[in-house]
Computed example of a mutant assay.
Amino acid sequence: MRFRTGVAVVALAGVGVVAAGVWGVSSLLGGVTPFFQPDQCTAEVNGHEVTLSVEQAENAALITAVAVGRGLPAHAATIALATAFQESKLYNVGAGDRDSAGLFQQRPSQGWGTKAQVTDPYYATNAFYDALVKVDGYETMPVTEAAQAVQRSGFPDAYADHEADARVLASALSGNSRHAFSCRLGGAPDAASTRLTSSGLTHRADVVRREVDEVFGDPPMGGFAPGGVSTGHMSGSAHYDGRAVDVFVRPVSPANKVRGWAIAQYLVAMADRLDVQTVIFDDRIWTAGSRSGDGWREYDPPESAGDRAILEHRDHVHVDVYP
């Protein structure tokens, strides 16, 4: 599993981070995505909206997904997200105060790991949670107190400044708030090899399968249907080309519905990096490209398409990648 580990050359004054905005340009032939709109992601819960760059969204999604995969409460993700907001603005920063680095500005000299490890978002996130779960009563502790217990910062009250945004992101990306997180992504990746791997998937689709497996558990609540075609798939489905993965969250239950939305919204957050084209779950659909700005839309397959129980995707997250 490879995340964006290229670290930015950034000077930190306290905790400030200078970051370059990423701008997406839609095709003039597409005609529906406004020209020069930035690629960005948003989460909205109870009227509070948080807007992130694509890189920030990927890091927020990973931080939350690791908590879900470890069986930690959403409060743990809120603490971690507030910490990363304060320490790095959710960017994987290469250098900070003294020898601190990465999302959480962890210091190798303080036993957090090597420079390479603390700038690996997956490692750094797990290291943070390893420390957090040792804090007695963190589950009910105020966010800033729990964050400070882990970080031992010189600015212990600063984490509270990011609590509201962290709560929105944790609620959405943990799946507790359904279809509350989305990304607007313009353009499409270059074509890739259509050769199938041993799993029956293209390389791009197999990368998605392996990443979901690693982040959310082995297997994630019911397993995968990576290769082949199940009864009820419509003609033209990406399953026929080995470009689609179904991640099952069976049996259908409130807890599994939450987990399904965590997986679905993680895949949207990672769509740019993983070349994801479509995500469908719980009768909602998100598509990259010109319609991505519409967010999660109602999904209504035609009556004649086949088994609606399968097509409505109530018990599995469908994801397909670009050709």
Results as ranks from 00 to 15, higher is better:
residue 225 A to Q: 06
residue 69 G to Q: 10
residue 52 L to E: 13
residue 122 Y to A: 13
residue 72 L to R: 03
residue 113 G to N: 01
residue 110 Q to A: 13
residue 43 A to S: 15
residue 291 R to L: 10
residue 285 I to G: 01
residue 172 A to N: 02
residue 49 E to H: 08
residue 186 G to T: 06
residue 119 T to K: 09
residue 75 H to Y: 02
residue 105 Q to D: 01
residue 132 L to D: 01
residue 90 L to I: 07
residue 110 Q to S: 09
residue 66 V to S: 10
residue 285 I to V: 14
residue 8 A to W: 01
residue 303 E to Q: 07
residue 279 V to G: 08
residue 264 A to T: 03
residue 74 A to L: 10
residue 319 V to D: 08
residue 56 Q to I: 06
residue 51 T to L: 05
residue 244 A to D: 09
residue 12 L to G: 12
residue 194 T to F: 05
residue 294 D to C: 02
residue 161 D to Y: 01
residue 73 P to L: 10
residue 206 D to K: 07
residue 311 L to Y: 02
residue 284 R to E: 14
residue 225 A to W: 09
residue 268 V to H: 09
residue 289 G to M: 08
residue 149 A to W: 03
residue 203 H to G: 05
residue 17 V to R: 12
residue 262 A to E: 08
residue 241 D to L: 15
residue 102 G to Y: 11
residue 180 A to Q: 08
residue 28 L to P: 02
residue 165 D to A: 15
residue 79 I to Y: 00
residue 89 K to E: 14
residue 123 Y to M: 12
residue 302 P to V: 06
residue 318 H to I: 05
residue 249 V to Y: 03
residue 93 V to L: 13
residue 57 A to P: 03
residue 136 D to H: 08
residue 165 D to V: 00
residue 237 S to G: 14
residue 165 D to L: 11
residue 183 C to V: 02
residue 196 L to T: 10
residue 268 V to W: 13
residue 152 R to P: 08
residue 142 P to H: 03
residue 214 E to Y: 05
residue 295 G to W: 11
residue 240 Y to H: 12
residue 102 G to V: 12
residue 24 G to S: 09
residue 196 L to C: 01
residue 319 V to N: 08
residue 7 V to I: 13
residue 262 A to H: 07
residue 221 M to Q: 11
residue 277 Q to A: 15
residue 83 T to Q: 03
residue 218 D to I: 12
residue 122 Y to D: 11
residue 238 A to M: 06
residue 157 D to I: 02
residue 269 A to V: 01
residue 155 F to A: 15
residue 211 E to S: 01
residue 89 K to G: 15
residue 174 S to G: 04
residue 249 V to H: 08
residue 132 L to R: 01
residue 120 D to C: 09
residue 211 E to F: 00
residue 112 W to L: 11
residue 191 A to P: 06
residue 262 A to L: 09
residue 112 W to T: 10
residue 180 A to K: 07
residue 92 N to G: 11
residue 194 T to K: 10
residue 146 A to Q: 01
residue 321 V to T: 15
residue 198 S to Q: 09
residue 183 C to N: 07
residue 9 V to F: 05
residue 245 V to Y: 03
residue 144 T to S: 07
residue 237 S to E: 10
residue 319 V to I: 13
residue 259 R to N: 10
residue 282 D to E: 09
residue 236 G to I: 12
residue 128 F to N: 12
residue 110 Q to V: 06
residue 316 H to V: 00
residue 317 V to Y: 04
